[in-house]
Computed example of a mutant assay.
Amino acid sequence: MHIFMTNDDGFESPGLIEMAKKLSRLGRVTVIAPNRGRSSCSSSLSLQTYLRMWHKESYGENISVLSCNGTTADCCKLALEHWLRNDMPDLVVSGINNGYNSGTDCLYSGTVAGALEGAVFGIPSIALSAETIKDKDFLDKASTFAFDIVRKYFVQEKYRGTLSLNIPKEGKELSLDNLKVVKLGVQRYENAIREMKDPSGHLGFWLSGKMLPDAAPDTDVFWIHRGYPTLTPLTWNMTDRDALEKVRASIQ
C-alpha cells in the first residue's frame, strides 16, 4: 500500500510525523508538505510563483519526506500531477491538524483541502484533525484512534470516498462505539474579529475568536464540543441539489 500524506501545519508538525509513523505499518508513506505553517489556506494555489521542493530527513522506516514552499493544495498538485504520477498512492491522508476542522471551518481548512485533492483524482482520502497536537500523550492516543479509523474504512471496508475525522482531547473514550458519523454543521465564533492599534496608533484587526458549541444536534459541531469524535463524508461538489430544479424551472 502506498500512502501520500500532507498537511497545512508544515512538514515538521508533530501531528504529521506521528501519523506517518503509524501509517507506515500499512505500507510505504510519501510526505510532501509545506515548508512552514499554512493554516486556513483552503484550496489556494500559488499561481505565477516559482515552487521548490526539498528532500528532508525521514521520520522513520518506509517514510520519504519532502517539503515545498507552497500551500497544501500546491503540495498535492505537485505530488499527484507530477512527482508520483508513475507511482500513484492508494490513499491520501492529510493531518493530523492542530485544531478542529468542524462544520463550516472545512471551507477554510488546508488540511481538508488536502484530502479533497485526493477526491479530485479519484483516490480515497481522509482529513485528520485533533483538538490539539501539543500534548504528547494525547497525540499518541489521537493518532492511534485515527490509525484505527483509516484501517477500518480504507483497508477493511475498502471505502472509496473522502472522510473528515475530528478528535477531542477531553470527553468520551476514543472508540468506534463513541464515534458520531454526522453531517457538517455551522461553526460560529465569539469575538471573531478583534480591533487593535499598533505602537504607532494605526488601526488593525486580529482574526481569532472562541469556538461556540451551539449547533443543530445532528451535526459534527454539536457532538465535537460535547466530547465525541466525529466522522463526516465529504465531497468537492458544492451543488445545492435541493435547489437545482427550482432554479432551472425559473428560466423555463
Rank of each mutant, 00 (worst) to 15 (best):
E131A: 10
L91S: 01
A119M: 12
S94Y: 11
L107I: 11
D137N: 15
T111L: 01
S94V: 10
V112Y: 09
L84C: 03
R151V: 10
S102N: 08
G122S: 02
T111C: 14
H82R: 12
K134F: 15
V112L: 12
E81S: 12
D148W: 06
L84W: 03
A113M: 06
V112K: 10
I149G: 04
F147K: 07
L107E: 11
L128P: 07
M88H: 10
R85Y: 12
D137T: 12
I133F: 02
V92A: 01
V120R: 15
I126K: 02
F147P: 09
C106T: 13
A113E: 04
V93K: 00
I126F: 07
E131H: 09
I149L: 09
D148I: 06
I96S: 01
N98R: 12
K141Y: 08
D135S: 10
P89G: 04
R151P: 04
Y100D: 02
G99W: 09
N98P: 09
L91E: 01
S125G: 08
T111G: 08
L91T: 01
T111E: 02
G99E: 06
A146W: 03
I126E: 00
S94I: 07
N101M: 12
R151L: 13
E131C: 06
P124K: 07
D135L: 06
H82S: 13
A113Y: 04
D140L: 13
K134R: 13
S143L: 01
L128G: 08
D140I: 12
A113K: 02
A146V: 08
S102R: 07
D105F: 14
G99T: 05
G110M: 00
A115S: 09
N98S: 12
D105Y: 14
P89K: 02
D135H: 08
I133S: 07
A127Q: 07
C106P: 04
D140M: 13
V93F: 04
I133Y: 03
A146T: 05
T132K: 07
L84V: 03
F121V: 00
P124A: 04
G118C: 00
D135V: 09
F121P: 02
F138K: 01
N86S: 11
T104M: 03
V150L: 03
S102C: 13
V92I: 10
R85S: 15
G122M: 02
A115R: 03
N86Q: 13
V92C: 04
L139H: 05
W83D: 11
R85G: 05
P89L: 06
A79F: 08
S109A: 09
T132I: 03
N98W: 11
K136S: 15
D135K: 05
K134E: 14
M88F: 11
H82W: 14
H82F: 14
D135M: 02
T104P: 00
W83Y: 15
E81M: 12
K134C: 13
F121I: 00
E131K: 07
L84I: 04
V92W: 00
T144S: 15
S94C: 12
G95F: 00
A146P: 01
E117M: 13
T132M: 06
F121C: 06
K134T: 15
S94G: 09
S109G: 07
